[in-house]
């Protein structure tokens, strides 16, 4: 029967088979091509929602402009002061991209070795955190240069505004911690108020604020003397809370790795410009 079939039909079948093979092999090759990661994919990993390095740089510049504008609103900067701040902020951006380029160079050297590519995530993770948290934190060149850029009166005004912002963010994180604990084991309005007061007293804003602040605050909460909680909570509530805290107590290493916990965290003093000069 088969032999009787006309030649065009057989050749058509051959074409169909060839096309199917091409489709399958193209999918197959796409899967295996993943091992040889591209620069674009690397950028996507680091810059996530920003997509690539160029967009991220633009966003960071916008962010710098917002910071400068904010300090200007508070302190009334001269053009020269603004220029100095922008320069310092630009230094933060360049410092970040130098770190990025270093990791990228390493990535390019090992991009075909799946094992080593997995390892590079340890280097990418802090870059991601820095990008999402923002570069202009307390340890940034921008903030440090303020001391040499603005006068004492301007600095005091800035400190007040900065403190208000820190308190605002801290309050929101305390609220979030309480909401999550409340979901695990509901507390009464009275208990909620007492817990809020306790957390206000016993925790402080992380040195570098960012999207992982919750973990940094929860870590601090987990280290509060349990007797203070037991005065507010009953046994079952404490049992649930304590199990949450236990998970957080051992997170020091991760928090430090993510830059959320620093050995300098206890150093709360802020020196005024002339005091800093004197200290130096």
């Amino acid at each position: 029967m088969k032999r009787d079939r006309p030649a065009p039909i057989r050749s058509r079948r051959l074409v169909v088979l060839l096309i199917a093979f091409t489709l399958i092999s193209s999918c197959h090759s796409r899967v295996f091509a993943q091992i040889g990661w591209t620069d674009e994919q690397f950028e996507q990993w680091v810059f996530q929602q920003f997509g690539n390095a160029a967009t991220a740089r633009t966003k960071l510049k916008d962010s710098l402009e917002l910071y400068t504008e904010n300090v200007d609103q508070t302190c009334g900067l001269s053009e020269d002061q603004k220029r100095k701040l922008r320069l310092a902020g630009q230094g933060d951006i360049e410092r970040f991209f130098r770190k990025y380029e270093k990791v990228k160079k390493h990535f390019q050297a090992i991009r075909n070795d799946q094992q080593k590519v997995n390892e590079i995530w340890q280097a990418i993770s802090p870059l991601q955190t820095e990008m999402t948290s923002g570069l202009f934190h307390r340890d940034s060149l921008l903030q440090k240069s303020l001391v040499n850029t603005i006068n004492r009166k301007q600095f005091l005004a800035y400190l007040k505004v900065d403190e208000e912002r820190r308190r605002f963010h801290h309050e929101s994180k305390i609220g979030l911690v309480l909401t999550l604990l409340d979901q695990a084991a509901p507390v009464t309005a009275s208990q909620r108020k007492q817990l809020r007061d306790l957390l206000r007293l016993e925790t402080k804003p992380p040195r570098k604020s960012g999207q992982y602040d919750y973990y940094a605050i929860m870590h601090q909460v987990s280290k509060i003397d349990e007797a203070k909680f037991k005065l507010i909570l009953d046994d079952i509530q404490w049992q649930v809370f304590n199990q949450q805290f236990a998970q957080m107590r051992d997170m020091d290493k991760w928090l430090k790795q993510m830059g959320l916990l620093s050995d300098d965290d206890d150093d709360d003093d802020v020196l005024l410009p002339d005091e800093q000069v004197a200290a130096e």
């Binding site: 508070t74 923002g134 605002f168 979030l176």
Partner: peptide, 23 residues
Amino acid sequence: NAKKEVSVLTTAAKVDRKLVLNT
């Protein structure tokens, strides 16, 4: 109410982080 209050605060903090708002 507490949940709503916290949600408002958290969202406002997120907007602040993005736009660097003044007080």
